[in-house]
Amino acid sequence: MANYELINELTQFILKESRFCDQSLYSDWESLWTDDGHYWVPRGPNMDPEKHVSHLNDNRMRIQTRIKALNSGTRHSQLPVSPMSRVISPIELEAEEGDEYQVGVNFNLTEMAIQSTHDMHIWAGRITYQLRRVEGELKMARKKVVLVNGNEPIPNISFLI
């Protein structure tokens, strides 16, 4: 039997994380990470991050740098920030071990690129989260985003995806 309390808790975390991304709440979003966080957007499924170049492959240090750049007030590619709205599918608890949960969701994100072209961009794919309970609180240890168009020419992804 599924543990509905746990599913609900994981879902609430992911919905909050998604909202922080949508609203470009950079520092709030950064606070969701564990100290060993890994934020990864490969070009497609079945990629090896040590062999294949990724769109984004941030260790915790680089996540911090990314947030610092976004918070600098001079990150032109997010000035002004893109208005965004993402729809997250019901979650699938893919694996569970001790205090750690692997959760998969599909997402569909609409982004208005108001910095220059004013084009509306549609982003879609599957996110795999590694969530960990640290001192009673859920944290994000890994976020992997596999885009449907990761291996195609794509516009800027300088917002939080």
Partner: peptide
Amino acid sequence: QTEGAVGPASFLIPEDVIIAER
């Protein structure tokens, strides 16, 4: 280094792109 410097989600080229589009 490539991931940090170039590409659509990197630190440098997205800035150049927005400037180029404007």
